[in-house]
Write a protein that binds this DNA or RNA. Sequence first.
DNA 1: ATTTGTTATTTAATCGATTAAGCTTACTTT
DNA 2: AAAGTAAGCTTAATCGATTAAATAACAAAT
Lengths: 346, 346
Amino acid sequence: MGKKNLSLKDIAEKAQVSTALVSYVLNGREKETRVGQEIAEKIRQIAKELNYQPNYLAKSLRSGKTFTIGLIIADISNPFFANIARIVEDEAKKSGYTVIIGSSDENAGKSRDLIDVFINRQVDGFIIVSSEDTEDQVQNLLDKNIPFVLLDRHFPALPTDFVSLNNYKAAYEAGNHLIEGGYTNVGFIGYKSRLFHMKERIRGYQEALHKHRITAPPAWLLEVEFNTLEEIRTGIDKMLDARHRVNALIFATYRLAISGLKYINELGLRVPDDLAIVSFGQAEAFDLYYCPITYIHQPMDDLGKTAVEILVRKLQKPELIRTQVLMEARIVARDSSRSRITDVRS
Amino acid sequence: MGKKNLSLKDIAEKAQVSTALVSYVLNGREKETRVGQEIAEKIRQIAKELNYQPNYLAKSLRSGKTFTIGLIIADISNPFFANIARIVEDEAKKSGYTVIIGSSDENAGKSRDLIDVFINRQVDGFIIVSSEDTEDQVQNLLDKNIPFVLLDRHFPALPTDFVSLNNYKAAYEAGNHLIEGGYTNVGFIGYKSRLFHMKERIRGYQEALHKHRITAPPAWLLEVEFNTLEEIRTGIDKMLDARHRVNALIFATYRLAISGLKYINELGLRVPDDLAIVSFGQAEAFDLYYCPITYIHQPMDDLGKTAVEILVRKLQKPELIRTQVLMEARIVARDSSRSRITDVRS
DNA sequence: ATTTGTTATTTAATCGATTAAGCTTACTTT
DNA sequence: AAAGTAAGCTTAATCGATTAAATAACAAAT
């Protein structure tokens, strides 16, 4: 890097004082440490002239604080998470923190590695979007008393700080929205996952059906292992062949929706006449679709900012009590779920 | 963080030797520094038992190397860049480097700040997707002899390492593809930018027209200031009202394409019969569109990996000569630009 | 018995910033 | 004049790892 790295010592020499004075002045502690007026001014002057930048490494080594946050997200190739990453980064910068980002790619092993690497890099704390089967890792952080906040996904059994969505309610409202719009046969496509947020989405969907006394045949609920066109195809085929054919579909993620819609296009089905659609998450593709897709808007901004706030507060006062936030998602209703009932009325 | 941070000293005490020996052994320098066999084994044993992790800060402070790469991208909310970020991160990890990411949001000021922050954080080098008006910043890095590689965008006048696309050729081929498919009136929508890659795309488009002796009225080329629906609207309106109405459009970025397609939908124009489309970049939305969009595939993987390779090589051997790579993009032809001529033939 | 040589290990400086403790002056107070 | 105290500064230890230089212990050579 730059040739001669300017240090406190250089300033001290130029000002003919010890490094201690320089340190005091540049850290604004001149009053309490009784540094002389003129000397202080001189030091500040020289520091400005030479454009002195303190060495973070030395500072951190001494203080034990790196002002770095480790952000572990489940999949950075997913725009939802990429956006969250950006928000976290921006927000952290406001408080003087740098963020290092790692993507666990929904893989517990990678997640573990990342946590190790980041601890080794002396991050002050973590923000984590957990992958499946990482409950033990989170427990471990708790045990070691390492500050962290879970983001978007959390483990209800663990006493952690977190910021998530009220997924149950969001899914419930999605179901409700469709049913009250006259679509009584609502299917759901999600992941087969042990993660709480996914289970909650499914539970919310089921509760909506239950509330309206609709009995769903098993085929209406599809839990795919992976987001492959094959799994989606056979799943949707079953829904359409079922004793009661579905006339609406809820997708648990926008990527599932995109796969699903591709197949629906292939089948030549029209949205929403043949099949109404609601999806979690927002995507550019939803706007461009011939029939704009109704989606459940997730407040990424709030999620990201709040996570940073909680973590930063915690880093400053580690003794603080746990903060657990469940945010509300809102449905953005568009053509893909337009009511059949108002059609009749009008 | 963890209570008592285990250090070399602890191991030294437990093994009843000085820290020097421990350092030698754990850095695999026991042969050259002639450490006794049994002692060496003992040290390794104890280190493993205590799960010793060296302190990066101390190491870095001493060595002046942080094994950290600063990645500055133009806009992390753009999936293209987000994906590149991920690739860079993965690739860097393979060589033992951690990546810290910053988004300049296409803003020269933010870019400058980020570079400062990262230098301050003692990154070993940079990978940069430059924003407009940052040529001076890049020149500055050159002057200070700070290792860096430009990615996806570069400044032809500066003697830097870079990995970019042959944008001229890609645009030329896009134009060619359309014209040879029977669409003689090809419009182009790009940004009004001083950045080389954008200029090259425009030049390639114009060259394709020129080669086929097509004279384009000014309205065919739209250079928007920002990607707003208003600008796109008036621009496309003009193209359609022009003396020679366009029957095909090239978009310089996928986001411009999405805005454009929205308006084309509004107008009720059908793709490709009323208007053929080719766009730079790949997007999920292109697959989902009723008529899959022809796009210019950018080899993100290669771009990202190569940038890391070049930088890492440079960090290891700073005296190395400049590496400048221009990669080829390939057209993925789909329905949105299907040939009119083959239609006739069949 | 002294020198030379080898091998094995320790000492101490270093990277850069922080900070408790110590040391001079100069000025009050009795 | 002696003692106290405040102001203004310096010294030196510290964070943890690295490494040149010094040292010790012992064998071989003179």
